Simulated assay, not measured.
Amino acid sequence: MTGSTPPVLIAVPIAVVVAVLAATLAVALLLPPRVRLPAPVVVAATGADPGWLRRHRALWSLLAGAAGATFVGGSAGLVAAVLVAVGVWVVVGRAEAPETRRERAEVRRDLPAVVALLGAALRSGAAPADAIVLVARALPGAAARRLSPVVARLALGVPAATVWADLATDPDLAPLGRTMARAHDTGAAVVPAVERLADDLARRARAEVEDRARAVGVKAAVPLGLCLLPAFVLIGIVPLVAGLLGSIAW
């Protein structure tokens, strides 16, 4: 009776660990993947770096599986190893590549200027497709590349309402797509709407820059404090304490 107790005590935590790992894997598989930007043809041709995390995806999965098997142990460790390895494989595969982050940052940075130039081109009498072509020539970059399919679809005769509605689903160009789609549906003037959008984006960009500038001061306080506090103790406190101890001993 005494000898049958340890297996029961050991089996309970193993079952709990396996259940937790299975639940974690189920949640990872059920979560929708992160929205990724459509990769340009040039990036695909040159073979952009997927990042160190995704580049060594198999290694991280193997290490996680080995850690799970070592932690659980026994026959249940094999199940835990498979669950952990598959979970790490899925999670790392859904991680955002550095190239995607850089492109998204470039699009958001250039979008106010792109919209302002688009409004100027529209005010001069250019059609939306021609205006986008002029903007792409004047300000080449990630935002211009992302707008190039709009020109191609409009040139092929796709309804403008469909084109702008599809652009509104873009995670970064959605404000422009919503503005153009709203103006097209309601029949309102496009130029004032685009110019208002350019002003709003410019104000938002300035606010984000100011927030980042204020955050720099807050983040710099901790390392400065860590550097200045030991110097203050060594220069101000230690000589004073040493002098007091010396006078007491004397």
Rank of each mutant, 00 (worst) to 15 (best):
V8M: 13
V8Q: 09
A11W: 11
A11I: 06
V12Q: 03
V18M: 06
V20W: 11
A23Y: 07
V27H: 08
L29K: 04
P33T: 01
R34C: 01
V35L: 02
R36G: 05
R36S: 10
L37M: 11
P38I: 07
A39M: 13
A44I: 00
T46L: 14
R54E: 07
R55L: 11
R57A: 09
A66S: 12
A66M: 13
T70W: 13
G74M: 05
A80E: 02
A81V: 04
V82D: 01
L83N: 02
G93N: 08
R102S: 13
R102W: 06
R104V: 09
V107C: 11
V107K: 04
V114M: 08
V115E: 01
L118Q: 02
L122C: 04
L122Q: 02
A126T: 12
P128A: 10
A129W: 04
A136T: 02
A138P: 01
L139F: 02
A144S: 14
V150M: 10
P159A: 15
T162D: 15
W164R: 03
P171A: 09
T179S: 13
T179F: 06
R182K: 07
R182S: 14
H184I: 04
D185R: 15
T186H: 01
A189P: 00
V190S: 05
P192V: 10
R196T: 12
R196H: 11
L197M: 06
L201W: 05
R204A: 15
E210T: 08
V216N: 00
K219R: 15
A220Q: 07
A220E: 05
L224T: 15
L226D: 03
I235K: 01
I235T: 12
G243N: 10
G243T: 11
